[in-house]
Write a protein that binds this DNA or RNA. Structure first.
Lengths: 195, 195
DNA sequence: GTCTATATCGCGATAGAC
DNA sequence: GTCTATCGCGATATAGAC
């Protein structure tokens, strides 16, 4: 499509503005300017700043950052050795912040606004965390020779260790304070789970 | 002391305001009102909103939330069985959000403002995450019969799994979407590490 | 539908009396 | 040191022409 619709232009401008400044500091004037439309046009499509923000985050949750773990990916690889599969999975997740720098600011905003926008936080958990945990739990159950007593809790440990590593190292700039090679985390995690 | 100083009154008011609304939406008028002083008095002690915010977060990082893991605590218990010790440690950390509800909003704010206040994020990582990891790494090294190949990375897994559980369940309201008893995480984590 | 122009308000920060 | 009163600005949101 050569001519994107105005709402799409507005949402694109809003992404940049909100991700850069956060909800409260984002300006509807700047969003309109970035989109190349007037402020009145923004308000004719989204009735308020809060409406625009909610529509935006829901769009981001549903489309842009859903690639992390697609349900179909895991079921197809039950024949690969578990340590190889888990190592690849961990590597792929840890690469995400480098592949899409927006992801870092997006997580900052979801966490930062979770107290004032609980529904958005829940949408994030449902779409990303819950989906990933469900897939990984399914995989652990499908690998009976791993003898995992509690597949669901084991998935929490795996995802939690990796997600917190990303939060600490990249989002909170811990890489400059307590650096650690990703391989060490991956090796330790895979060894713990596959024995 | 019967009469708290003005700066302390101001900081107390600022805590509530910033934790409730976040940096950008916090109002210097409301902070002054909460502290029971005039706005000019606030500016005479802290030259700007940003200065006040930085002073506040540094105070919170250094004092209020440092109780999580004191360095002296771990060294004294090398004779307790590791599984018992790790279980108690995990339980204590997981209880923190209930013991101090401010902790939840504090973590929301540190993560949410980390892009615009990187130094505060680093102060948080240095004071809390790094301290906790250092203590736990020391403990793992002092338990040679656990045969931990990489104590530092193992500490990351332990702390990361628990911290991410808190973030998902409490900060992002995941408890309503993907509930899980804390015991299951603790059991799984301790079993993985102590074999 | 989209624009320009404006209404209304609260913000961070300060001047000046006491 | 602390107050009252205020400045200048940019915010969200809207009215009305086209």
């Amino acid at each position: 499509m050569l001519k994107p619709t105005k709402p799409d232009l507005i949402l694109d401008g809003a992404i940049a503005e909100f991700l850069e400044r956060g909800y409260a500091a984002a300006s509807m004037d700047r969003i309109a300017a970035r989109a190349g439309v007037s402020k009145a046009t923004v308000y004719s499509h989204f009735q308020s700043k809060e409406n625009l923000f909610v529509a935006l985050i829901e769009r981001l949750v549903k489309s842009k950052f859903l690639v992390l773990l697609e349900p179909g990916q895991i079921e197809a690889v039950v024949d690969v050795p578990p340590d190889v599969f888990l190592r690849e999975l961990a590597t792929k997740i840890l690469e995400q912040p480098s592949n899409d720098p927006d992801l870092t600011n997006f997580m900052r905003m979801v966490v930062g606004e979770s107290g004032r926008f609980p529904e958005l936080a829940k949408a994030f958990v449902s779409a990303l965390t819950a989906t990933g945990l469900r897939s990984l739990t399914f995989y652990f159950k499908a690998c009976p020779h791993l003898e995992i007593a509690d597949p669901e809790a084991t998935a929490r440990v795996f995802v939690g260790a990796i997600a917190h590593f990303i939060i600490t190292q990249h989002i909170l700039y811990g890489a400059e304070i307590i650096p650690m090679a990703e391989e060490r985390l991956i090796n330790t995690l895979v060894d713990l789970i596959t024995g």
